[in-house]
């Protein structure tokens, strides 16, 4: 999991890039993630990882690490994003604790 492992051509990276730029797509993410993933041509492996909020899998597939934190915020909200926040805790559960 590093910036040199990023797969720039991965459809997930384009989807996340676009979503954060457009509140209409943020709503789509919440209401119709399946439709959004289909529209961006995500592989079944990618779709399954998003369905299960599997950050480790997304990292392994080549999602940019910077996007991983933003994906946690798309699922859990962004306000007061300190270590106790639901978004940061989701990251810790997925990627910090299993690595120990």
């Amino acid at each position: 999991m590093s910036i040199s492992d990023v797969i720039r051509t991965l459809p997930s990276n384009r989807m996340v890039f676009d979503v954060r730029r457009d509140m209409a797509l943020v709503r789509r993410w919440k209401e119709d993630l399946e439709g959004l993933m289909a529209e961006y041509g995500l592989s079944e492996e990618e779709r399954d990882a998003f369905r299960r909020e599997d950050l480790k899998k997304l990292a392994d597939l080549g999602v940019h690490p910077y996007f991983l934190t933003q994906i946690t915020r798309l699922y859990h909200g962004s306000a007061r994003n300190n270590q106790a926040s639901a978004a940061a805790q989701a990251y810790i559960r997925a990627l910090v604790e299993p690595a120990k």
Binding site: M1, S2, P65, Y66, L68, T69, Y91, L95, V96
Partner: peptide, 9 residues
């Protein structure tokens, strides 16, 4: 800092 990376925290 390392947002989202191995040294995130």
């Amino acid at each position: 800092h390392d947002p989202g990376g191995p040294r995130y925290f």
